[in-house]
């Protein structure tokens, strides 16, 4: 009896695998966001979810699980059923910085997640207040070298991409800065605009209005290449700070063990959604670029970023304590 039952069970388990990709999705799909509503990751998730709902004819729902440096949401995503109905939108901070920053994260990218596609990418910039004498990366570095550790730089928080880039810039250039973390990019941008401190590394979208109003000036873009939208901003690399470059990206993941056909289908459909004109327009409004990739491309990017960030975090001795 038990043998027959086992046989039945295995057949029952096998059948859906074949038809999964054709029928997926046949019920609502959830996207877990490890951040509170309102941030750029949440916005990206909501824009993508609305488009996928349209494409699939099934509700795609965003579920915010904020807290604990993204650990709560990432853990929830890792523990979800691997059937493609519970996806997780993690950021570069969640998947490439935190594993290097925290000695024991409650999830493991290799053990728990399968990459699907990159989703959004946001440019970061180095800004200075309008009353500061700095006009170029060299000015900033010279000032910092003249008074080591006496030049304050605002970032959106401890262990965020801007923080990592600040440490990286310090390591490569030898200039030392005072890192002043804020609770998010908005307050940090206002602090630089209000002359509370001279410098900031922040999302380009968050400082755009202060740049326009003349409260702050952009010194450099933190990406490895110049921006398509603002080609006049120099990169750090061309200003002589070798190799330093990065941006704030987010990507979609499924729990490890999700059938490969389903992952491939989601990746293809997400790619299609991210190429839609209205999605591109909404992303760009929020200061992001839609950047679909294949699962393999995403895996490579994670590996590359993680290795370089781990080295920076180790050399700069960044510790959450």
């Amino acid at each position: 009896m038990s043998v027959i039952r086992a046989l039945y069970t295995s057949i029952a388990l096998l059948i859906p695998f074949g038809v999964h990709a054709q029928t997926f999705p046949n019920k609502p799909v959830q996207i877990i966001v490890p951040y509170a509503p309102g941030g750029s990751t949440d916005l990206a998730a909501r824009v993508l979810a609305a488009k996928l709902t349209e494409q699939w004819g099934q509700q795609v729902v965003v579920e915010n699980r904020p807290g604990g440096n993204g650990f709560i949401g990432m853990s929830a995503g890792a523990k979800s059923k691997p059937d493609g109905y519970a996806l997780t939108l993690g950021t570069v901070g969640d998947v490439a910085v935190n594993p290097a920053l925290f000695p024991n994260t409650p999830f493991s990218m290799e053990r728990d997640f399968t990459p699907i596609s990159m989703v959004s990418d946001a440019e970061l910039v180095l800004i200075a207040g309008k009353n500061t004498p700095y006009a170029s990366v060299q000015d900033v570095l010279n000032a910092a070298k003249a008074q080591p550790g006496r030049l304050s730089v605002a970032t959106s928080g401890m262990g965020t991409m801007p923080h990592i880039l600040l440490e990286w810039m310090s390591l490569v250039s030898g200039a030392q800065f005072q890192h002043v973390p804020y609770k998010g990019g908005g307050p940090a941008a206002a602090a630089v605009a209000g002359d509370n401190l001279p410098l900031g590394i922040l999302a380009a979208s968050g400082v755009a209005s202060f740049v326009k109003s003349g409260h702050v000036k952009v010194i450099a873009i933190m990406s490895p290449e110049r921006s398509k939208n603002n080609p006049s901003w120099p990169t750090l690399i061309e200003s002589g700070v070798k190799d330093v470059g990065g941006s704030g990206w987010s990507a979609l993941f499924a729990p490890r063990g999700t059938p490969p056909e389903v992952v491939a289908k989601i990746s293809a459909d997400v790619g299609k959604a991210l190429k839609a004109d209205d999605v591109i327009a909404r992303f760009s409004g929020a200061g992001m670029e839609a950047v679909p990739t294949t699962p393999t491309e995403l895996a490579t990017r994670i590996k590359k970023d993680r290795e370089s960030f781990a080295a920076i975090i180790k050399s700069a001795n960044v510790k959450p304590e």
Binding site: G39, S40, D42, V47, A208, S209, K212, H215, G285
Partner: peptide
């Protein structure tokens, strides 16, 4: 967020 999606960045 809703404003930004509409292409409006709150600011001065």
């Amino acid at each position: 967020g809703a404003l930004m999606i509409q292409g409006i960045t709150p600011g001065p």
